[in-house]
Each structure stands twice: as structure tokens, then as C-alpha cells.
Computed example of a mutant assay.
Amino acid sequence: MSNIAPTNPNQGSLAGSFYMVLACLCFALMLVFIKLSGQKFGMHTYEITFWRVFFALIVLGGFSWLKGRDFRTAYPKEHFWRSFAGSVALLMNFYVVLHLPLATASTLQNTSAIFLGLLSIIILKQKPTLVSWVSLILGFIGVVILLKPSAEGDAFAMMLGLLSGAISGYAYLQVLELSLLGEPAWRIVFYFSLLSTLIAGALALFFNFTPITPEILPYIIGIGLTALGGQLLMTYAYQVGQKFVVATLSYLGVVFAILFGAVIFGERLDYLSLLGIGVIVASGILSGKK
């Protein structure tokens, strides 16, 4: 019997699926903490974003320093544009979470997979397969369906959510390019957290921070812990799990968002909205099929 581990990227531990389910639960809980922070304490987008990335910056930076990792990079410009795009997308996404149902906000963020595919064709000149074209077309049909029933709602938040997905797709493209240049994942996340903390912190100072009280503190900690836990669990899921299965399970975040939105906030989506969400999720799953 051979002791050599399998190298096929489609082979992996079932534990990867479990980790992804937990990651989705963490990210959905993060959305809950964000929405509650806005509703209960009037916290605005900038300070919520600041606490989310500041927590990650301290934990990741401190751990990397203790491990003796090298923070220097030969690609500062590439890191800046990736981090700037990610920061703008995050600010937009958190605004959307505060102004739209959780399921709608989560789905619009997941359109990043659609835009990543489109940008890969335009910028990287990748030759799309038939599956890629079907996925892109399905995705944009889903977006049109999802936007239409919300015409009487917060149209600005809907469009901002879609723009957030597009910018996130560009940021993920930059992550891919940095990875190909040999930059480790921890350094990419560290510089993103650093620039996001500076941008969100400056904006929060301008618009004034909400005073930290014992009542607010659990929500701030909850945002930071669930965001960091979700990121770590998702990373580990992709490392040890079967790639397509893990990517498919990542859309459980939308399901959790629907459930939490209904139970905690009393949110109800009509059938047309649910159809749009379903089509977008199907598009994302299809885009992960190689």
C-alpha cells in the first residue's frame, strides 16, 4: 500500500465540507451582528467596517509577528490596489446589509463570482467554456429578476450591492495575481486589513464614532470573531476539502441569511425575489464546475 497522499484537487476530506458549513454560519452571524449594531445603537457603516477589519488586523498581525513572518513585500502597488478595491467593496457591502434584507445583501455580495468570471475574460483574456458562458448568462438573469421586485424598495442600496459584487470580483482577481506572484495568503489579508482599517477609521473619525459601552461591546466583538472565524474556516475548508463540493456549500450562507432574516428581523421575501436568489446561486455553483 502506498502512503503517498492524493494530489487530485477534486479529492479531499469530508471534513472540508463541515468546515465550510461552519464558515457560512459564521459569516451569516456576522451579518446579523452588523444589522443589529445599526438598528439597536445607530452605528454607521464606517465604524462597523473599522471594527471588523481592526480586529482581523490585530489578531493576524500579532500572530504573524510572533511567528516571525516577513511583512516586507516586493509588490506594494499590487497590494495597494487589491486592498483598496476590497476596502471599497466591504464598505459598500456593509451599507447594503444595513439597508436591505439579509438574504438580498448576501446574494448581491455573491455576484462577485459572476463578475470574477467576466473580468477573467476581459482582463486576463481567458477563453471561456460553454459552462462559463451559461454561468454568466444565468447570473445576470438572476440579477435582473432580483432587482425587479425591489424597484419599490431601496434602489440605491440594491445598485450599491451589485457594484460591491463587481468590485469584489476585481479584488479577487487581484488576489489571484498576487498569489501567482508568490505572495502568501496571510500577507495579502494583512495588507487588506491594514488599509481597510486606515480608510474606515478615517471616515469613522470624520462622522464620529459611537461611544463604546458595555451594551455595544458584545456586538463589536461578535462582528470581529465571526468574521475572523469564517475566514479561517473557509480557508481551511478549501485546503482539505473537495474543491467543487466546498465551493457549492459556500452558498449555504444565503440559506442561513434567509433563515436569520426571517427569525430575527421578520424579513419576508416574495417568490420573485427567491427565484432571483436561486438563479444567482445556481450560476455561482455552475461557475465552480471545471
Rank of each mutant, 00 (worst) to 15 (best):
S2F: 10
S2M: 07
N3K: 13
I4T: 13
A5T: 10
P6E: 13
N10F: 08
Q11W: 13
S13F: 13
L14H: 12
G16S: 02
F18W: 15
L22D: 11
A23D: 00
A23P: 00
A23V: 00
C24G: 06
L25P: 02
M30E: 03
M30H: 03
V32C: 15
V32D: 14
K35L: 06
K35H: 07
K35Y: 06
M43K: 00
M43E: 02
M43L: 14
T45C: 06
F50P: 05
W51R: 11
R52H: 12
R52I: 05
V53R: 01
A56N: 07
A56D: 04
I58N: 00
L60W: 03
F63L: 13
S64V: 03
W65L: 15
L66N: 06
K67C: 04
K67L: 10
F71E: 12
R72Y: 06
F80L: 14
W81P: 00
S87D: 05
M92T: 03
F94H: 13
F94Y: 12
Y95D: 12
L102W: 05
Q109R: 12
N110F: 15
T111V: 08
I114W: 02
G117V: 01
L119Q: 09
I121V: 13
I122D: 09
I122C: 09
L124S: 14
K125D: 09
Q126I: 01
Q126T: 04
Q126N: 12
T129M: 12
V134Y: 02
L136C: 06
I141R: 05
G142D: 08
V143K: 07
L146Y: 03
L147F: 13
L147R: 09
L147G: 12
L147E: 08
P149G: 01
A151F: 08
A155K: 14
F156I: 14
L163A: 15
L163Q: 08
I167C: 09
Q174D: 01
V175S: 06
V175N: 03
L176P: 00
L178Q: 07
L180C: 07
G182L: 11
E183N: 03
R187S: 12
R187V: 06
I188R: 01
Y191I: 05
F192E: 02
L194G: 05
S196Q: 02
T197A: 12
I199W: 04
G201I: 04
L203V: 09
L205M: 14
L205H: 06
P211W: 09
T213I: 04
P214L: 07
P214G: 04
E215H: 10
P218N: 07
Y219A: 10
G222I: 02
I223K: 11
I223R: 11
G224T: 06
T226Q: 01
L228V: 02
G229E: 04
G230K: 00
L233W: 00
T235V: 04
T235Q: 02
Y238A: 00
V240G: 14
V240M: 13
A247R: 01
T248Y: 02
V254F: 09
F256C: 04
A257F: 03
L259V: 08
F260M: 06
I264N: 08
I264L: 14
F265D: 05
E267K: 02
L272C: 05
L272I: 11
S273P: 01
L274I: 07
G278F: 01
V279G: 02
I280Q: 14
V281H: 15
V281P: 09
A282D: 02
S283D: 12
I285H: 11
G288F: 07
K289W: 09
